[in-house]
Design a protein around this nucleic acid. Structure first.
Lengths: 347, 347
DNA sequence: CTGTTAGCGCCTTCAG
DNA sequence: CTGAAGGCGCTAACAG
């Protein structure tokens, strides 16, 4: 907190100026400018509107927030904006918020300390009305009690102890869709690059994999479930392990796109040609997927809708409406995007 | 703009509460809590501090902003947060801002209309003190006059008409470094996937390419400069054109990482093996680059520093300090990251 | 339908 | 070194 002199207040036009120009009281101008339900003589109304336009009046958000204790601003905390997955969530949330009259601001918490700092300065100090929190990693560095007590937060794509409302995708259905496709192609030895075991999205995706396998009557060797992680590095390492199995899988369902990229790299390095020697299907899609070698077959999840629903749920919560503790986004349904990383097994 | 009832004001503790608990006036409490220069009896000071801690006092940012007309919040407008390039810029700017006592909030402008909406609601309505604007695409949809008049904006990595201060990377030096490496490896027929001709970063990178070529006495066939664009798709198309040349290049310097990904895909599809048949070097690095097939040799630019310097420049501007119209980040210098997409020409 | 009055919570002269 | 008073710009309750 640097001690700096207050900024010059340029001749910003205030509500009072507009009112004066229109020859009315500030409160009247206020009412018209916010088009309150109250009816106002067509004439005065017009005068006020035109005065405001002439003067280029813009209401001061801080004064308004102070008075009404609503900022009409929402925050979205993301562990790392670069994650391909978040792009759509962010877009969906931003648009939905705007449709409801809110501005959505993002916080990148890739640096440690940012998450709790942002939470403090945005929620506690009242810069935003509520916050969307994406990812569990982030919440770990946050004081859960504060989080819950605030009553102004919604978790996106994670469920968390303590009963914060959360919005999640249908991880299980998505993963099933992917594994079913592998089965349909004729694969029977299908492994899973599952993601961290302590993250609930990962657990649900794994459950989807198991469900699909079991529905097809397929056995899952213990080593076929690799709880790698969600980074390229993790996918790389996990695939190395899978490739080292005495009986190697003919197909792999990967729980994240970053891990898939790493998996592809591991295959290349081990002389395993995808999809000839091994099919790979990725959970989550991204523009990048179409340009990899080979282009990645993927399960497209409705992430934009996830973001939008999360934003709407948050707004309902702030409005004091009753909200479900968990909202699962099932529409639109996950969609399979067939590209070049899958084919029938050669064996 | 949904008409909603005002939110419940929970028993937030105010400055007056702290003052009362400590048996002093609010103004005194204010002074202590902001540790103003003024000296205050050790005893009262301690009482106030402890009262604040006991009550869990947090100052209301809106009231403070209204009074002081400073929000201690900065905005960063990004055309698309998913762009691999922005991750580092964002991190750098976020951290630098925080070190100066500011919170940095991001705006994703991937949806049309978001940019001008955000500009209006953040800058004009006074939710932030100043704004960093990344990319020229974004500025196109903004009213330049407003932008300049605001006197509270800094352009990151673009220069713009109208004299807005801007902070840029040393595109020319970076590109030279990459092309020099290609030359060092023995290449002579080097093409350039240059990026859009109407974007100034692209022009500077192209200039770097030309400078390196000319310094080595190398000719540049007209068709070797392909003003593709910065997306995967653009890189793909551009590489197709390059590959179709009667005398094909043995190496390509690509002006962006996304285009490089597309270029790699085009090579694969045309049976051109990288780096055996063609070397590719990419301007800008990203974690992803190391996992592509082949891993991409790249020029790492100091993007985090770019973000940090931009944030600092903005703060100086807001403080009324004189700022340069253009600041070029030359330290640390661009760095070559040799990976698998470059080698000596076979010819 | 419009004006009057009274703050929202904080900071900042100005006295003492 | 500390308290008293005023106001940042806006909205909301109450009159008229």
């Amino acid at each position: 907190v640097t001690p700096t002199p207050p900024r010059q207040r340029p001749g910003r036009v205030r509500l009072a100026d507009v009112a004066a120009a229109a020859g009315v009281d500030a409160s009247t101008a206020s009412r018209v400018l916010r088009n309150e339900k109250q009816r106002i003589t067509g004439d005065t109304r017009a005068r006020i509107l035109r005065a405001a336009a002439d003067l280029g009046y813009v209401a001061n958000a801080n004064a308004r927030s102070l008075r009404s204790s609503r900022t009409m601003t929402l925050g979205l905390l993301v562990p790392n904006v670069a994650g391909a997955v978040y792009a759509d969530v962010i877009r969906g949330a931003t648009v939905a918020a705007r449709q409801a009259g809110y501005v959505m601001v993002l916080i990148d918490a890739s640096e440690i300390g940012t998450a709790s700092d942002a939470f403090h300065r945005l929620i506690l100090e009242g810069r935003v009305d509520g916050m969307l929190i994406a990812s569990g990693t982030v919440t770990d560095s946050l004081d859960d009690e504060l989080l819950v007590d605030s009553g102004r937060c919604v978790i996106v794509n994670r469920q968390i102890r303590g009963g914060l409302p959360s919005v999640i995708e249908d991880d299980e259905a998505g993963m099933r869709l992917g594994v079913d496709e592998l089965i349909r192609l004729g694969h029977r030895r299908i492994a899973c690059l599952a993601g961290p075991s302590d993250v609930d999205t990962s657990r649900r995706r794994l459950a989807g994999y198991r469900a699909a396998m079991s529905a097809a009557g397929l056995r899952i060797p213990r080593a076929y479930v690799d709880q790698a992680g969600y980074t390229e590095q993790d996918g790389f390492a996990g695939m190395q392990r899978l490739l080292g199995q005495p009986v190697a899988p003919t197909a792999v369902a990967s729980a994240s796109i970053a891990a898939s990229v790493g998996a592809l790299a591991a295959c290349r390095e081990n002389g395993v040609e995808v999809p000839r020697d091994l099919s790979i299907i990725s959970f989550h899609d991204a523009p990048l997927a179409g340009f990899l070698s080979p282009p990645l077959t993927a399960v497209h999840m409705p992430l934009e809708e996830l973001g939008a629903q999360a934003a709407r749920l948050l707004i309902e919560l702030l409005d004091g409406d009753p909200v479900p503790r968990t909202l699962k986004v099932t529409e639109p349904a996950p969609r399979l995007v067939a590209r070049g990383s899958t084919t029938a097994p050669t064996a």
